[in-house]
Amino acid sequence: MSKKPGSSTSLKTIYIIYFIAFLLFLFVPLIINGILAFNSDEVPSFPWRGATFGWFYSSSEDQVGVLNDARMIRAIGASFRVAGMVTLLSLLAGTTSSFLFVRENFWGKQALYFAIIAPLVIPGVILGISILVFFNGIIGGLKATFGPDLARPIVRALRPGSLLVILGQFSFIGTIATLVISARLRKFPIELEEAAMDLGSSRWGAIFSVTVPYLFPALLSAGILAFLLSFENFATTLFLIGPKPTLPIFLYSRLRFFITPEINAISVILMAGTALLGLLSMTMRGRAEVG
């Protein structure tokens, strides 16, 4: 019995100490970041100068809080819109692609699979610039074919801005959604769908009444993951952003020049939100893997 790996007690103590140090390294900066959101000093550091919630909502000139910072609120709104669209696209394309990869066999399937896996090993910056130059090329082509006046409305949409940000983020977040959804679909007992069809439903009917409910935990998990990845994306977005910055881009420009505990306050909000969604997603994924 004494031969379990790592059974020696002194070794075990060293290991436990190491792991605690590891956890401290992970958490101390985040916890201090959170604590300083409630310090009334305008430099995010110690000493403690009294507790305040001002960095969350104050509107006075020397203490602007998150809720009264119009540009911050606009950036949060932009991030929500982009993340919502990316989530929707990722779930749609992730589900349809999963059906193809899990259920169908066709010439070139391996190549297509490789193509959608590739974004996981392409740096985000490269995804950003390649989409930027490609859509700029399309703009050039449209202008040359239809003349600048006719092409204008389309050209406007294809310039750096929300649409390109959504497409750029989707190009790799869709991959992650596909991996999560196809893992669940692979476990689906296909007889259920066949049974539904024997009972008279069409193939589409069977998919919507039997398969999609079965996929639900995976869809929820993939959706949360897509939303969070989009909401925090920086590298790809940086090159595709137009005049309306998303929250990470806005915070980045703030961080370079002007740091107040307002940034700690938005950090607290983001940490609470992501921790909640993250835990929900993980429990859903856990259920998807068991069921």
Binding site: I32, L228, E232, F234, N264, S267, A275, G278, L279
Partner: peptide, 16 residues
């Protein structure tokens, strides 16, 4: 858990 949190927040935490 910490890796669900935005990279920007994590970097900022180390900055302060």
């Amino acid at each position: 858990l910490p890796f669900w949190i935005s990279e920007l927040v994590r970097t900022y935490s180390w900055m302060i």
